[in-house]
Simulated assay, not measured.
Amino acid sequence: MLTQLFFFLVLIALLRKFAWGPLMETMQKREDYVSGEIDAAEKSRAEAEKAQAEAKEQLKQTKQEAQQIIDDAKSAGAKQEREIVEAARREADRIKESAQEEIANEKEKALQALQDKVATLSVQIAGKVIEKELSTQDQEKLIDEYIKELGEER
């Protein structure tokens, strides 16, 4: 029994040296490898979260810049619209004023021409009246003729 105990202890020592030691060493290496992989994965996850946060911030900033550009374009468009409307209003006022001046000039010319024509007709009527003494009926007839003549000339 002592021999068996002795061989059993030798067997345990040999197993410990050649089987258990290498097995434990392999298990330790495996544990270290898994631990390293977990650490690397954790580090990668942290970097990915950081990159995601930076991307979100850049996207937010880009959206703000785009909105600012849109707002600037809208205000520039509104300003340009006001300027165009104001320029058109000034031009319309200038054209209206010019047309009113032209109408006034044409009216003045027409009145002057009418006055000249009336004066000429008055002189002609007076000349004919002086040439012959007309009766009331002849005077009315003569006035009607000149009024018709005046109407035809217009």
Rank of each mutant, 00 (worst) to 15 (best):
M1Q: 03
T3G: 05
L5N: 03
F8Q: 10
I12V: 14
I12Q: 07
A13L: 12
L15Q: 01
L15E: 02
R16M: 01
K17V: 02
W20N: 02
W20S: 01
G21R: 03
G21K: 04
P22A: 00
L23E: 01
L23W: 12
M27S: 03
Q28F: 07
K29L: 04
E31V: 08
V34E: 08
S35I: 12
S35W: 04
A41S: 09
E42T: 10
K43Q: 07
K43I: 06
A46S: 07
E47D: 10
E49N: 11
A51R: 03
E54C: 02
A55D: 03
K56D: 09
E57T: 08
Q58N: 09
L59F: 12
K60R: 10
K60I: 04
Q61L: 07
K63T: 09
K63R: 14
Q64D: 13
E65T: 12
E65V: 12
E65P: 01
A66G: 01
A66V: 09
Q67W: 06
I70W: 10
I70N: 11
D72L: 09
D72K: 10
A73P: 02
A73V: 04
K74L: 07
S75Q: 14
S75E: 14
A76W: 06
A78I: 07
A78W: 06
R82Y: 15
E83G: 03
A87Q: 14
A87D: 14
R90V: 14
R90D: 12
A92E: 13
D93M: 12
R94E: 15
S98M: 08
A99W: 03
A99K: 13
Q100K: 14
Q100Y: 06
E101P: 00
E102S: 10
E102F: 05
E102K: 15
I103E: 10
E106V: 15
E106L: 15
K107N: 08
K107R: 14
E108I: 04
E108Y: 06
K109Y: 08
K109F: 05
A110S: 04
Q112K: 13
Q112D: 11
A113M: 07
T120G: 09
L121P: 00
A126V: 01
G127I: 01
V129Y: 12
K132G: 02
L134S: 08
T136D: 14
Q139C: 04
E140P: 00
K141S: 13
I143Y: 08
E145V: 02
Y146T: 00
K148I: 07
K148W: 00
E149R: 02
E153K: 09
R154S: 05
